[in-house]
Design a protein around this nucleic acid. Structure first.
Length: 858
RNA sequence: GCCCGCGUGGCGGAAUUGGUAGACGCAGCGGAUUCAAAAUCCGCCGCCGCGAGGCUUGCCGGUUCGAGUCCGGCCGCGGGUACCA
């Protein structure tokens, strides 16, 4: 008996597809177009299970859409700039470019083994000068259009390595390489003015009907529109040069509960005070000795220092409030200064208790409220609360109304004005690193900051750089910076900052529509292929990448690089769960954690060790990542069982949106199943049975299962429920295996297997081709149209209805599908279990849901 | 800290979206085949109980004829937190 040999079959069919140029996207006016895109990978050099899962999903959709008659665009490229290449350069002395392109080659060959229906003719890497040159052109156009600005912001500074650190490179407030405590340092940097579009980006979320609700929510919260009051405190005891203290609050209704004002350690006033008071200078410096990440700042212990200055309460000139500096006030949000109302804000309350500041109630819960003790009372927005200590009145209203009323009252009294603010900050794009897209500007002593001329693009990265010291290799290059000023022609210096890699990934989807165009995009191609009909990627990109891409599409519309209709570039979004795995760590001689790959670790019960016996600490199950090294190489499965097994395996069991913990068991089961399917085909008689007998009951039963499966698998693919589709295909296979009988049944079996090949094609394309060929199909199964279920096999004339007594299932009855309520009731009341329960009486209530359930309440 | 998810047998999960909880698969158990094994095929398989029956969707409470599904409150885990991508 022949076995299915994936090792020979898979390359054979891949070659056949190649020769047919089956996956080259071609605009076709006869067909609807479909653009399916998976978030492109960072070329780490190693394919991992997350990739296989992500790209298999996209491939199933692409192949399915191809079968349903669409002109499909399914491209692939590489998100190729980024930190790991520079780390490799420092650790191993390889050039980041060489390292990256080697990785791309390695990953491309790994990808090709999986048989994805990708249009490789459109491939590019973001580190190709052709791509980043076009990106520089976009930058210049956006600069020209006023979408980019230059301002100061803070970075993590490693004072020993004299370099800027990414948040990921800060561990417990220390530089990961030097171990030195990091400091916040202010630099002048380039920014996309995304906050100017905050409102637009927020409002447009409502139109994204085919995006997950959770992603829209996260983005809305991230943009964080709020309506509040901005007002100025007058100083009762101030500092020269500071007339007033500008404050923004979303809770002006609690103004009468104010007990202090607080400013950020980065606030100009806080800095000015450093010259006068040594303790304030020390406090501020201490605060600056933490990283710049919000998480770090917000979870740090709340600390403050009294400046000795005071301000007067805006509604009561005789009321003075102390001004504190507090480490939890962010300079980036609002005005960098707040007033504290301990009674109605937990953080303010903790602060007040710690430093012995007064707590004054404004609100109490609607009935019988107690004054605040150690838990702040935050009034609900939409439910009424008792407003006990407001502007003179005692009344009941909702928190929302109280805010609105407070704003209008304050405005009427000339205290500040109602303003709308956003949490969203401008997108800082400058990076002090070599391996990124150079920012195409020149610094000239005479002319200032001058944009490079477009004809001089791309501004290419120099190849001859060294990585023997930390920091930006462009800064150490002997000549690269020297350039003639595009404006005056005099000697000038290039900007050495490069762009955030999020810029690279914010428009690649547009570039795929015309990857070799001489301009960033080709309007005709963009017009035809945009938008992305289905975008697929990890949830971890729910905010940043997707928000930046939305901004970029709008910016490209404004600069004439995309049609208006592409303002929202992704029509439908699917966020897949992550592939997770335990983490393994040992402690290095320097006392810091060393991460180990699962392959290096021997697991024994609850403990683990390395091959040499070193005990390993087993960490939490988290997303597979390069930095934690908890990745699993899928190549073993592919080499052992073939691509179809790997593809079938990742589509089975786990719902695509959910995280899945990788375990080795199970791949074997997938392989066995595919072999079983193949065996059924191989064991069929060589020639189709020539029968003219009508289908008997068994054949009809099999056809019912078949058509039910067609309908279910179609719905599963459309609904991104591949695991359910796989389960249905198992059921069909079981039914084919069990079907026994005469010529009619064997004819039905052959039909079912032929259909099975077409249904499995998106998931296991190589096996499907092999089955199709063995069953005598013409051409490629790839080119077969998607099967359509025959409705006549989908309807049943009877239905099995459960009978509940007091909500618990006690029996079942079979009734005609179109039985009316009275018939069902009669049948239910005649059921022995019901008769027994009623014991001669009549039911208190009888609920019949037609076709569903009967509930007898006794 | 804040924002967003998730939690169902030994395991991955299903449940027509408020209507039979546990489809399908893995593991396990029993049998057939085999000199034996692999492979394959057939059957059993939530928990407690000999049984009748009872219990069961992280925990506590609520709404409902009926709750895995809706509401309120907890607990645990994960993602994001603006320089990882």
């Amino acid at each position: 008996m022949s076995r299915y040999n994936a090792r020979t079959a898979e390359p054979k069919w891949q070659q056949a597809w190649d020769e047919a140029r089956a996956f080259a996207a071609e605009a076709d006016p006869e067909k609807p177009k479909y653009y399916v895109l998976e978030m492109f990978p960072y070329p780490s050099g190693k394919l991992h299970m997350g990739h296989v899962r992500n790209y298999t999903m996209g491939d199933v959709v692409a192949r399915y859409k191809r079968a349903t008659g669409h002109a499909v665009l399914h491209p692939m490229g590489w998100d190729a700039f980024g930190l790991p290449a520079e780390n490799a350069a420092m650790e191993r002395g390889v050039h980041p470019g060489d390292w990256t392109y080697d990785n791309i080659d390695a990953m491309r060959s790994q990808f090709s083994k999986l048989g994805f229906s990708l249009d490789w003719s459109r491939e590019f890497a973001t580190c190709d000068p052709d791509y980043y040159g076009q990106q520089q052109a976009l930058f210049l156009d956006m600069l020209d259009a006023g979408l980019i600005t230059r301002k100061k912001s803070v970075v993590n500074w490693d004072p020993v390595d004299m370099t800027v650190l990414a948040n990921e490179q800060v561990e417990d407030g220390k530089g990961w390489r030097s171990g030195a405590p990091v400091e916040r340092k202010e630099l002048t940097q380039w920014f996309f003015k995304i906050s100017d579009m905050a409102d637009e980006l927020l409002e447009a979320l409502d139109g994204l009907d085919d995006w997950p609700e959770k992603v829209r929510l996260m983005q809305a919260n991230w943009i964080g529109r709020s309506r509040g009051l901005q007002f100025a405190f007058d100083f009762a005891s101030g500092l020269d040069g500071f007339e007033t203290l500008e404050v923004y609050t979303t809770r002006p209704d609690t103004l009468m509960g104010a007990s202090f004002a607080a400013i950020s350690p980065d606030h100009p006033l806080a800095k000015a005070l450093e010259a006068q008071r040594e303790d304030i200078r020390e406090f501020n410096e201490e605060c600056r000795r933490t990283g710049t990440s919000e998480e770090e700042i917000e979870t740090a212990e709340k600390r403050g220092i009294d400046t000795g200055l005071t301000v007067t309460h805006p509604l009561d000139p005789d009321w003075e409030l102390p001004v504190w500096i507090a480490n939890f006030i962010l300079m980036d949000y609002g005005t960098g200064a707040i007033f504290g109302c301990p009674a109605h804000d937990q953080r303010d309350l903790d602060f007040a208790r710690k430093y012995d500041l007064p707590v004054k109630d404004v609100f109490l819960p609607a009935e019988g409220g107690e004054p605040v003790a150690n838990e702040a009372f935050v009034p609900p927005k939409t439910e009424p609360v008792r407003y006990v200590n407001g502007l003179g009145q005692v009344e009941t209203m909702t928190g929302e109304d109280a805010v609105a009323k407070a704003i209008s009252q304050c405005e009427a009294q000339g205290v500040g004005q109602g303003v709308t603010k956003y949490r969203l900050r401008d997108w800082g794009l400058s990076r002090q690193r070599y391996w990124g897209c150079p920012i195409p500007v020149v610094h000239c002593d005479a002319c200032g900051v001058v944009p490079e001329k477009k004809e001089n693009l791309p501004v290419e990265l120099p190849k001859d750089v060294t990585f023997d010291r930390p920091g930006n290799a462009l800064d150490w290059h002997p000549t690269w910076r020297d350039v003639a000023c595009p404006n005056c022609g005099g000697a000038a210096k290039r900007e050495t900052d490069t762009m955030d890699t999020f810029v690279d990934s914010s428009w690649y989807f547009a570039r795929f529509t015309a990857p070799r165009a001489e301009t960033p995009t080709d309007m005709d191609a963009a017009q035809y292929w945009m938008n992305v009909d289905q975008y697929i990627g990890g949830v971890e990109h729910a905010i940043l990448h997707l928000l930046y891409s939305r901004f970029f599409a709008r910016a490209m519309v404004k600069t004439g690089h995309l049609p208006e209709s592409a303002s929202e570039p992704f029509d439908a979004l699917f966020t897949q769960g992550m592939v997770t795995h335990e983490t393994y760590a040992t402690t290095g001689p320097d006392g810091r954690a060393r991460w180990h790959e699962p392959g290096e670790v021997i697991r024994e019960g609850d403990t683990a060790r390395l091959e040499d016996g070193t005990p390993v600490e087993v960490g939490p199950v988290i997303k597979m990542s390069k930095s934690k090294r908890n990745t699993v190489d899928p190549l073993e499965i592919i080499d052992q069982y073939g691509a179809d097994t790997a593809r079938w395996f990742v589509m089975s069991d786990s719902p695509p949106e959910r995280d899945v913990e990788w375990t080795a068991a199970g791949a074997d089961a997938a392989w066995k199943h595919l072999q079983r399917v193949w065996r059924m085909v191989a064991e069929l008689e060589d020639t189709p049975p020539a029968v003219d007998v009508a289908d008997g009951a068994d054949a009809i039963a099999l056809r019912r299962v078949l058509h039910r499966t067609i309908a279910d698998v179609t719905a599963s693919i459309e609904g991104f429920a591949f695991n359910k589709g796989v389960a249905k295909l198992y059921e069909l296979t079981n039914a084919i295996g069990k079907a026994k009988g005469g010529a009619d049944v064997s004819r039905a079996r052959r039909d079912a297997l032929t259909m099975l090949a077409r249904l499995m094609q998106p998931m296991t394309p190589h096996l499907a081709e092999e089955m199709w060929a063995a069953l005598g199909g013409e051409g490629l199964v790839l080119d077969q149209p998607w099967p359509v279920a025959d409705e006549t096999y989908l309807v049943d004339d009877t239905v099995l209805m459960p009978i509940q007594i007091n909500g618990k299932k006690r029996s079942e009855i079979t009734v005609a599908k179109d039985a009316d309520k009275a018939t069902v009731e009669a049948a239910a009341l005649a059921d022995p279990a019901v008769v027994k329960a009623l014991d001669g009486g009549s039911p208190r209530k009888l609920i019949v849901v037609p076709g569903r359930i009967v509930n007898v309440v006794v």
